[in-house]
Design a protein around this nucleic acid. Structure first.
Length: 493
RNA sequence: GGGCCGCUAGCUCAUCGGGUAGAGCGGGGGACUUUUAAUCCCAAGGUGCCGGGAUCGAGACCCGGGCGGCCCA
């Protein structure tokens, strides 16, 4: 290559490739459009052909063939020597070649960045999943569907915000660093707050803070953000994941079920053009209303075993035994029923179905069912064998909530490290009076998996958590110094 | 945490009953005035994941470890 000119600081006037090509479908082979465009992107294929050359230029909206002629294209030789993956910007007329390919006939062009590494086999791409996750920037170029998935994810998030905003919800941000972990049964990450000389926790859920905002008069409030749970890595779990939580005053779980149905089905219709989707071989129609069925009912349907909370602990334990579900001696009737459901039934439900009438034992933040003893007003909608949301009539009574949390804390003392703790600030807020409120939690990662028909969470996370592929260096002394320097921290400040 | 499978050139993959490795693509050089994964010619490119062991000899066999995948807990 000739002398390497420094890339420009800006390259103005570009038009998206998809837009540059649009409207020229009628151009006949060999015909020129008279329209001159400037496009930019990566050269992903190159076919030099002596005194003329072809290449494929791709940006995030699409691809177009570049057509160059030694006689009319500037620095023609250099253009034919580009590596696959180099960024260029170019200006030329939209034409259709003799062989019928819509192209930009390059007049002038600029190298915007050279690549030092390839983007995989140009035909087969990159399949090594380890490489794909660790170098997602490569994956995004090598595998078209990956890019589409993540663009879809962004659209899903935007669409959900729009729908909530349209219903009068306001988005807020509550602490990620919390002095006590709360709002879900999960192990938290612990970190140290130097200035306060105290350990803090990365939130496992924003729930308790959002409810305090309802107490504070935020009648429709939501937060869409990251939660952290200190659990193992698996195809279905990532330690950090994205959750929507929304709370609506004066509403119950039935109202909130309708909200979830609208968020899911409405977004599907908007982005996929249909509510009928296929997830891992199962066809599902997301069009509301969704079936509602009690937990005992669906367990009976799937297993053929009659069961009901009212049967009592011993009878349910016997059912569990017949179904091969292990039961801890400390479990009560509700917990046993829930274990049976989780092990035998949940994955079999294609849905969409709201599973309801959960036992109070496994639902410490949910209000008691208005008519069914031992049950709470909670629904979990299941689609394609997976839980995609939680829907509650929120527990508002400070005394009941206190006794539930005290019971949780006791379980924690007894060794259940996923059990909750007593949060006095939260309880004091409830004492100020929380109106009847409905709440939802909607897993964004799972929703994207559903819409994109992908079986693993890693395919919908740009940078999923992975084991370190080399020893961590930051803990070492010179490593820390280097990090400070690299961030340009002002010396002596 | 347990079981099974995988790890070979930058990428995608071969090779073998143990005798120190190949192809396509990419990258380098050359030819080519309508290509579509262009084609053709030339040369280069390997710590066979890491560490041990048995063997005259190991990428292959044995042991340990790492990372990944799938399944189970």
């Amino acid at each position: 290559m000739s002398a390497t000119a420094e890339p420009p600081y800006r390259f103005p006037g570009t038009v998206a490739i998809a837009a540059a090509v649009a409207g020229h479908e009628q151009l006949a082979p060999g015909e020129s459009s008279g329209t001159v465009v400037t496009v930019a992107g990566r050269v992903m294929l190159s076919r030099p052909q002596g005194r003329l050359a072809f290449a494929e230029l791709r940006d995030w909206t699409g691809a177009v063939q570049l057509f160059a002629l030694a006689a009319t294209t500037e620095r023609f030789e250099e253009l034919t020597r580009l590596s696959l993956g180099d960024w260029i910007g170019c200006t030329g007329e939209v034409v259709r070649t003799k062989r019928g390919e819509l192209s930009v006939e390059v007049a002038t062009w600029t190298l915007l960045a050279a690549t030092r590494h390839g983007f995989g086999d140009k035909w087969r791409g990159v399949h090594d999943v380890d490489l794909r996750y660790r170098q997602r920037e490569v994956d995004l170029w090598a595998n078209e569907r990956v890019r589409e998935t993540f663009l879809l994810r962004s659209k899903v998030v935007a669409a959900i915000r729009r729908r909530l905003d349209a219903r009068g919800f306001v988005e807020v941000e509550t602490p990620v660093l919390q002095p006590l972990p709360g709002g879900a049964n999960a192990r938290p990450f612990v970190t140290h707050f130097n200035a306060l000389h105290a350990d803090f926790y990365l939130r496992v859920a924003p729930e308790l803070y959002l409810k305090r905002l309802v107490v504070g008069g935020f009648e429709r409030v939501y937060e869409l953000g990251r939660d952290f749970r200190n659990e193992g890595l698996s195809p279905r779990h990532n330690p950090e994941f994205t959750m929507l939580e929304a709370y609506q005053a004066y509403a119950d779980y039935g109202d909130m079920a309708e909200l979830v149905e609208d968020l899911v089905a409405g977004t599907a219709a908007e982005l996929l053009g249909t509510t009928e989707i296929e997830f891992q071989g199962r066809r599902v129609d997301l069009a509301p209303p969704w079936r509602r069925a009690s937990l005992a009912e669906v367990v009976s349907e799937v297993t053929g075993e009659e069961c009901d909370l009212a049967m009592g602990r011993d009878a349910l334990a016997a059912v569990a035994g017949r179904l091969g579900v292990e039961v801890d001696a400390a479990f009560g009737a509700g917990r046993i029923l829930y274990e049976i459901y989780e092990r035998t039934t949940e994955h079999e439900l294609t849905g969409p179905v709201h599973v309801m009438d959960y036992p109070v034992e496994v639902s410490p933040l949910v209000r008691a069912h208005r008519s069914k003893d031992g049950a709470v007003e909670r629904m979990t909608p299941i689609v394609g064998g997976r839980e995609i949301a939680e829907i509650y009539s929120e527990l508002c009574d400070p005394d009941v909530q206190r006794s539930r949390l005290v019971a949780q804390a006791a379980a924690r003392e007894a060794g259940d490290d996923e059990a909750m703790v007593v949060d006095e600030e939260f309880l004091r807020a409830l004492e100020h009076g929380m109106p009847p409120t409905g709440g939802i939690g909607l897993g964004i990662d799972r929703l994207v998996m559903l819409f994109a028909d992908l079986p693993t969470i890693r395919e919908v996370l740009l940078f999923p958590a992975l084991r370190l592929d080399r020893p961590a260096e930051l803990g070492e002394e010179d490593g820390e110094d280097a990090a400070s320097d690299a961030h340009g921290l002002a010396p002596g400040s």
